[in-house]
Nucleic acid binder design. Sequence first.
DNA 1: GAGCAGATGTAATAACGTAACATTTTATCG
DNA 2: CGATAAAATGTTACGTTATTACATCTGCTC
Lengths: 139, 139
Amino acid sequence: MPDIMEDADRHCAKTGARLTPLRRRVLELVAQARAPVKAYDLLSQIDRTSTSAKPPTVYRALDFLIEAGLVHRVEALNAFVACPQAGHGHAAVLYVCESCANVTEVQGSRPGQENKPAGFTVKRSVIEHYGLCADCPRP
Amino acid sequence: MPDIMEDADRHCAKTGARLTPLRRRVLELVAQARAPVKAYDLLSQIDRTSTSAKPPTVYRALDFLIEAGLVHRVEALNAFVACPQAGHGHAAVLYVCESCANVTEVQGSRPGQENKPAGFTVKRSVIEHYGLCADCPRP
DNA sequence: GAGCAGATGTAATAACGTAACATTTTATCG
DNA sequence: CGATAAAATGTTACGTTATTACATCTGCTC
Ligand SMILES: [Zn+2]
Ligand SMILES: [Zn+2]
Ligand SMILES: [Zn+2]
Ligand SMILES: [Zn+2]
């Protein structure tokens, strides 16, 4: 995941966000995982090195990373994935394989806004598709 | 919410699903609410009458209602809303107002599947838009 | 080096959800 | 009808996820 970390450094340098060592470490852990990561799994991985990590440590780092556009929360899994395209402007669309747990992110303009009610202003969208990826055998 | 309860009765009669008194009571509570309802709020409302409700009581009822297509889970809120169109075949698209908590459900065919990866088979979609409804003042 | 803001440490607890097993209710069938 | 099987509910206990509140530290400005 060197791309992701380099992009993150560049993106934070450009926006003024402070990618501290702790936040950077959490992003590395999320980016290295080949599947969505749970907050408490991050916690135990950090624990092994620093011994002082508690829940707020990881949740605060994740809040920062999400705010910075470096990580997305997978709402239906209570888990987190690294964004492959730091700070993209549009909403993320996630395709999550329920067999191998791989997540593919695509982006689009106003995705999923079918039949939007008149006068509704969308601030944030959660779009997650669950199913089987091309590499997993059909039942 | 007489419509919702009557539709639910009809829908369950047609499909053979058993809308028992407990499940019916939970559906009534969800349908009466003017906002997404939390599982533990349902629990305390049931408690007031029956005194024997525990977490599995309400979670099992909710599982049934979701399976039957009578209730949707709002993933990003850990909460539940009654479906205004019992057992509709397509994925639900929810517009959630962050000011007044009102939820508007619309339905569509294959909503939100922008740039679907080749070979991916979607089994279930989570599509939730958060923002401001037409009736709420802009900041 | 005093003061401030942002970041992190720490303890405690709230909020959300499930596993496992006992009991009761309902449907089915000889 | 009464045995029996299946479905639903009761109950205990616990696991997981997330936040609040307050203390301390770190880097910066004046
Ligand atoms: Zn992204
Ligand atoms: Zn797969
Ligand atoms: Zn619906
Ligand atoms: Zn509103």
